[in-house]
Design a protein around this nucleic acid. Structure first.
Lengths: 252, 252
DNA sequence: CGGTGTCTTGAATACCATCAAGTCTTGTGG
DNA sequence: CCACAAGACTTGATGGTATTCAAGACACCG
């Protein structure tokens, strides 16, 4: 496996920093910063944004034990949040799509408690935690928005626990695909009939997210293709039979 | 398996309700309500407490889709928070010990998002969510306490995801035992050398928490006993070799 | 003292990991 | 643009871990 390159050292400088990029992107639809009008890409607002950063694929954005006073929110590209085990194996806790905050822990604390690695090239904005915090006290709606984000995150964690504890490989993979498709649909990033979308995940990403090995993921995906449920080509995925995939995902 | 009895229907009335029980218990040591002085068991405070409830073992305290105005906090006894799958299998998300809030989701929202079932007879207190919420706005320290609880919960969820996704049966079980022992130690509920504590869990609880079957849990526990790492008798557990158990839990 | 629920143990089986070899894709430098 | 190398993917063979099934021992309770 390729070792990811660590960008979190201040000196590395391979992350390009640009100020005041302000195009509206698909991720803005579901973005907390957009909802709270604290982003420079939004029309108005007392910006608590600090900067915009772009990094390439397979780079580490932050470590578990880093101390950050800013909350990064993904504007474009895919990333993942993971923990490493002592034997070197990895468990992906969640995939981060455009509009997602990198670890909502960072709304309240300095430590992300997981490390974040890009899957594709990623652009993200940094928002000052103290600025966000002041807004939360000034405005109960902001605090409610934080609570909502927090509940969604917990809810996804709980679902993942149930998947890993009690479901078989094909169910886990079908649920992962459907979950990602749903989140991409909310962002308007799914098009066509049958629905298709960019799918940059490698087998090892799917494996580390579902608690399987890349080899076994390959076999399961081959089965789904053979049964005409999905089609994968050139880093994009089409769900040919949504109901069939949902049947594998849900029922037992 | 025994079907648990559902107490969440308002009419059932098998839960005994007593007002103003105010003895200091082991769970008070780590209890949020005690820290915030909102509990009648604490010396002073503007109580936001509503009532005290006692229920027997294997009873459902609340459902996933219940709408609750109050946050229950366990005063005595063990409970667990779980989700059910469509095939009837169950995944336990966490064990609740004295001092633990039943689903911290209820600090901000009305839905617990998991169902809560008692393991032993349990006494809990109900605290009004609106009262807690007012305190959080009045007092930044209260909000920080909420954030801390929330981070701990997320941290435990993440650890469980890593356990279920990437660890083997003996590791999961050793980690469960050590995790429970640590939490009980914080509450002063572990005594003796070698350390021993009340351990009311049945095999099916351990199985549903670790994503295994009761049969296999039995085999793993037999191994731990045979190797002199633990001793179990009459619903109590002694850890005879903490270092050895930690070695199984951590390393690979 | 049956009855129910719990625990233990063994045998057979299912699922997934590991290992290995080969093919395909992607990126890079000449 | 091509050649090469490294990474990614596929497929089959084999083995280990956990499940399922089953039978019997044990504890607890009315």
């Amino acid at each position: 496996m390729v070792q990811p390159i660590d960008l979190s050292d201040a000196a590395s400088g391979t992350g390009r920093v640009r100020q005041f990029v302000s195009r509206i992107l698909p991720g803005c639809r579901t973005c907390l910063a957009s909802e709270l009008a604290v982003c420079a890409a939004a029309k108005a607002g007392a910006y608590v944004q600090q900067s915009v950063v772009t990094v390439s694929a397979r780079r580490i954005v932050c470590h578990e034990q880093d101390s950050l006073d800013a909350l990064p929110i993904i504007c474009g590209g895919w990333a993942c949040c993971a923990v490493m085990l002592s034997d070197g194996s990895r468990q992906i806790l969640s995939f981060l799509l455009p509009g997602d905050p990198v670890s909502t822990s960072l709304l309240f604390a300095a430590k992300p408690n997981c490390f974040v690695e890009t899957v594709t090239p990623v652009t993200y904005r940094l928002f000052s935690r103290s600025g966000m915090r002041e807004r939360a006290f000034a405005n109960p709606e902001t605090l409610d928005a934080f609570a909502r984000i927090r509940l969604e995150e917990q809810s996804r964690s709980d679902a993942l626990i149930a998947d890993l504890g009690r479901r078989k490989a094909d169910e886990r993979i079908a649920r992962l695909i459907l979950g990602l498709m749903q989140r991409l649909q909310q962002r308007g990033m799914v098009a066509g009939d049958p629905p298709a979308f960019a799918f940059p995940l490698r087998l090892h990403h799917i494996a580390d997210a579902t608690g399987l090995t890349p080899v076994h993921v390959s076999k399961v995906l081959s089965g789904l293709r053979r049964d005409g449920l999905i089609r994968m080509s050139r880093r994009s995925l089409a769900v040919l039979d949504t109901a069939g995939l949902a049947a594998i995902a849900h029922l037992r």
